[in-house]
Amino acid sequence: MKLKIVAFGIAKEIMDGKTHELELEASTIGELKKYLCEEYGDFQKLNSLAFAVNEEYQDGTYVLSENDEVVLIPPVAGG
């Protein structure tokens, strides 16, 4: 399926750009994460990598839909 990926912070540097369009087999966030960690090994070095869809955090079980916009959230550091 086709997904739009938006990367912030260090994720943007790891993927060398803020927005990406991916065509892949993944049907859940968990599978997407596995794909990203294999494709971009530096994700495995992070303290965490969270995901958001529609401005809400979603865990690995979240079922993706065609054309979903998935936001990559590396460890946050506000304040």
Binding site: F8, G9, I10, E13, K45, L46, N47, A52, V71, I73, P74, P75, V76, A77, G78, G79
Partner: peptide
């Protein structure tokens, strides 16, 4: 809260809390 910060030092830079 999804906010990130990068510390810029005299000899490099680091994304805070990333690693």
């Amino acid at each position: 809260v999804p906010i990130w910060k990068k510390e810029i030092f005299e000899d490099g830079e680091v994304w805070v809390a990333a690693h």
